[in-house]
Design a protein around this nucleic acid. Structure first.
Lengths: 339, 339
DNA sequence: TTAAATTGTGGAACCGGTTCCACAATTTAA
DNA sequence: TTAAATTGTGGAACCGGTTCCACAATTTAA
């Protein structure tokens, strides 16, 4: 490993001052034509590239955005990372991914603040360190993804859960389901689930519906968890007629559980998913789901951060992604039933 | 946004030199007890935290690892990111994710080298910039994931494709399938696919098998693509009796296509997947697949990088993940057939 | 009581760049 | 031909830390 060439090496070889080398790399139009050529030749010969670290020391700009995600089992996070990465890479920014799982509650604290100056902004995806993140806003732009905040200077990207549940419950009611027929399976009971729960309860209240408390379950996002919760629900004396899962993956597990119990989806029990509708149309039966692209959350958040970086005076940005109710085979209308 | 406190601010407030402040933060046992307290109090009062950038300038250690991934549609990459992130975060390293999609072929080149000093090492996941990455090895540790290299000083993490195909073909033959019955659907024809294709062909040759060229397809990793390729295969005069997909997600699409054509999996056509067996057991029918956890690739690669960082003299590290053949419902044995 | 070893401290130099500003050389205007 | 404006250049200072090393103060050994 031979040592890297520095700006001084190039300056010496080209027979100019280091200032001139710096200028050639940053504002070549401000330098003489011949000088530019000389310096570039020397730089090439030495394989010189300016060190981003040394640059950042002056700039306080690193062209790096941090993305703080809980390392959850759901693939949603992975999609968000993908979306943000794509948007930022295209614009020559880098993405630093940080884990905010609850096990790191204390280190993370230390850890992020440590990153302060290595990062031009932070995208925060509903983890547990909300308050810390809000404080960070005093130092740099912060975007919240699917997470509420009291602060009014924090940009946000949200999924319109209210609208989603309204669409869904309207559809189910018009399909002949009663509120007592409906079961709902949330993910792990964390900050994010609480957001959804609140939205769901609000809609239920608005629509004058009341679920049987036995039919509200907390699971853990994975297919296995959806499987287990379906077994629980179908073991009840009074079985639900439709089960809403807060993720497609859990719904997949749920459908399999029904099948393993000798029941048919949707004849014996209907199933609805939410989220990552990437494959829902291919499941057997295809899954009725509230579709949105988590990737879009990442893209929107990255966009907001760069906007804010360009203009810190911008009024607060709030992007709301609406879901689409994809009606597939996993729900069977009960219109004709005589209850 | 009030300015951040620097080491000099702390030194002044504590009435000591900046060297002493630096010492208190880095080697407190080398400083006097009272001094440590004084400095810590001053640091706390000012909310001081050492700037990682300024630190990195001396260290040439940033405690950051770069992960270069093609932004493919497959969820495999997302799993790899997750695994690496988890391992590194636990050890107080950060993960910088870079996109090596082919569209960025030129920028990427520039881009990575630009990152040189911000990164202690690079994990490279079968993208198109292989040669560039090999050059990087002269400057820092590089780990290749699922990518071959001529260089013998590059650590590697691989999936044992040879073993996987051996297991699979043995199983299929012993289940009554002939080579002419077998179709195989690869992903997009890129560096990574070529690796698998090579492995598969080698095994076929070893076992004296020959596939019908019509039955070898290149698709594009997504469920939709798997769907389309199944329609192509089932449209052939001589239909394959078993279709091997190089990803579970494509297999899911394929099974759905068969169903939409009025065929039953596995009675009319058997299907095999590969890869992300996270959900394969929950599909309907459950999918026979070559199971490995892409997440483990990320973990193993992260581990190798940190090992190498600790000891650059370490002999080359090669981790080979073996797959497990999960036999599920999507393949039906043809033992009894009279051909 | 004196010499030697240990402990703690801070100024100077450095990491590799950028910015500021004075100044020399050249070009343009009078 | 001379004064004013423009162009190009590089030394010094700086960004915010760490490392090196000399030296003072204290402790231990003789």
């Amino acid at each position: 490993m031979n040592k890297k060439a520095t700006i001084m090496d190039v300056a010496r070889l080209a027979g100019v001052g280091k200032t001139t080398v710096s200028r050639v790399f940053n504002k070549p139009e401000m330098a003489g034509k011949e000088t530019v050529e000389k310096v570039m030749a020397a730089a090439k010969e030495l394989g010189y590239r300016p060190s981003p670290i040394a640059r950042a020391l002056n700039d306080t700009k690193s062209r790096t955005i941090s993305l703080v995600v809980p390392n959850v089992e759901s693939s949603t996070m992975a999609e968000i990372i993908r979306g943000a990465m794509q948007y930022l890479t295209e614009r020559n920014y880098s993405l630093l991914v940080l884990d905010s799982s609850e096990n790191y509650a204390t280190e993370r604290d230390y850890f992020h603040l440590l990153q302060e100056r290595m990062t031009d902004g932070v995208i925060f995806c509903h983890g547990s360190a909300k308050e810390r993140m809000e404080e960070l806003r005093d130092l740099m732009p912060v975007v919240f993804v699917e997470s509420s905040s009291i602060r009014e200077d924090i940009d946000k990207v949200l999924v319109d859960g209210i609208d989603a549940f309204q669409k869904l419950f309207s559809y189910l009611l018009s399909s002949g389901f009663l509120d007592e027929d409906i079961a709902i399976v949330y993910g792990k009971e964390d900050n994010f689930s609480r957001l959804r729960i609140g939205q769901c309860e609000k809609v239920l209240e608005e629509m004058g519906l009341e679920l049987n408390p036995d039919n509200v379950l907390y699971s853990n996002w994975r297919a296995e968890d959806g499987y287990d919760s379906m077994k629980v629900l179908l073991g009840r004396l009074k079985r639900p007629k439709v089960v809403i899962y807060l993720s497609d993956v859990m719904a997949l597990g749920g459908m399999r559980a029904a099948h393993d119990l000798g029941l048919i989806v949707p004849d014996d029990v209907s199933v609805v998913g939410f989220n990552d509708a990437r494959f829902s149309a291919f499941y057997q039966p295809s899954l009725t789901t509230l579709d949105y692209k988590p990737e879009q959350l990442g893209i929107a958040a990255a966009k907001q951060i760069l906007n804010r970086l360009k203009n810190s005076e911008l009024p607060v940005q709030i992007d709301i992604l609406t879901t689409e109710l994809l009606i597939n085979e996993s729900v069977k209308e009960l219109k004709g039933r005589s209850k």
